[in-house]
Amino acid sequence: MNDNDVLNAMRDAMAEVHMHTPVQELVAAGRSRRRRRTAATATGAALVTGLALTLAINSPQVHAPPASAGNQVHVRLAAFSVDTNPDGTVTVKLTKRQTLDPEIMQRTLAQAGIPAQITINQWCQASDASQSLEADLQKVVGTGEQSGEKVMVITPSAMPPATKLIIGMRTEDYQPDSPNSTAISMQLVPDDAPLTCTTDIPPRPTDTPKPGPKS
C-alpha cells in the first residue's frame, strides 16, 4: 500500500463522521484550556517561589559569620556563659564542663573577638616552646568574681595580631583519682604555630615537683 492508498482509506473511514460543533468553538475552547493551564503553572511557580523566600527568610542562620571584636555578646548556656563587659573585656564562666560543646564555645568566643581552639580532656601546646607567648597571655587572661564564683576575664584587645588561645579543659570524671589538680590549661600561640597534643593532664605550677637538694 502506497501513501495515496493510506490517505484514501482514511478519507473513506471518516466519511460517515459528522461534526456537530463549529470549528470556531473548538478552537476557542482549546485556547481557553491552554490559558487555564498556563495560569495554573504560573500560580504553582509563584507558590514555590514564595515558599522558598519564606524558608530563606525565616530559617535560622546556622553558620553566621563571627562578629568583629568589640561587639556586645551575651550568651548563657548550661555549660558556659560569655558576656562582653562595658570596658571591652569578656567574662567567661564555666558551669558543667562535661556537657560543653567545644565548637559552640569557639564560635561564641569568636563572636566576642576571641580566636580560640578548645579541646576536652586533651591538651595542646606549641611544638616549639619559643612560640608560646606567656608574657602576652598574662595580659590577655585574668580572673575575677561573678556571684561569688571565680570566672575568667579575657581582654581581646591585648591579643597580638594573628594569635589564638589554646584552651584545654578537663571534665570532672576524667581521671578523678589523678593527683594532678589541673582543670583548665591555656596558652597563647600564633595562628600558624604547629601544635603537639596529648591526653596526659599537664601539671599546674603548684603541682610540679620541686627539685630535691643537690647531692
Rank of each mutant, 00 (worst) to 15 (best):
M1T: 12
N2H: 11
D5R: 06
L7I: 14
N8G: 09
M10D: 12
A13R: 05
M14K: 04
A15R: 01
E16D: 13
M19R: 07
T21E: 13
P22S: 09
P22G: 05
V23R: 10
Q24Y: 14
A28Y: 07
A28P: 00
A28Q: 11
A29W: 08
A29P: 15
G30I: 09
R31V: 15
R33Y: 15
R33F: 15
R34H: 11
R34Y: 15
R35M: 15
R36E: 15
T41W: 14
A45Q: 01
L47N: 01
V48N: 04
V48T: 04
T49P: 13
G50T: 11
A52E: 09
T54R: 06
L55G: 10
I57Q: 12
N58A: 15
Q61D: 14
Q61K: 14
P65E: 05
P65A: 07
N71G: 14
N71W: 10
Q72Y: 09
V73D: 04
R76D: 08
L77S: 12
A78L: 12
F80K: 05
V82G: 03
N85A: 14
P86W: 01
K93S: 10
K93N: 08
T95E: 12
K96I: 08
T99M: 12
L100D: 08
E103K: 08
E103V: 10
I104F: 11
M105W: 03
R107V: 04
R107Q: 12
T108W: 04
T108M: 05
L109I: 00
A112R: 07
P115N: 01
P115Q: 02
I118R: 06
I120Q: 02
Q122L: 10
W123E: 00
W123V: 02
C124H: 03
D128T: 04
D128Y: 09
S132A: 11
E134P: 02
D136G: 06
Q138G: 06
K139N: 13
K139I: 11
V140T: 02
V140P: 03
G142P: 01
G144C: 08
G144E: 04
Q146M: 13
S147C: 05
G148A: 08
E149N: 05
V151G: 04
I154S: 02
I154K: 00
T155E: 11
T155Q: 06
T155A: 13
P156E: 00
S157T: 13
S157H: 03
A158W: 09
A162G: 09
K164M: 03
K164T: 06
L165W: 04
I166A: 06
I166G: 01
G168A: 10
E172D: 10
P176R: 02
P176F: 04
P176I: 01
D177F: 11
D177C: 09
A183N: 02
I184Q: 08
S185M: 05
S185L: 08
D192L: 09
D192E: 11
P194L: 02
T196V: 11
T198G: 05
D200M: 01
I201N: 03
P205V: 13
P205H: 07
T206Y: 06
D207N: 03
T208E: 13
P209H: 10
K210T: 15
G212P: 14
P213N: 10
K214I: 15
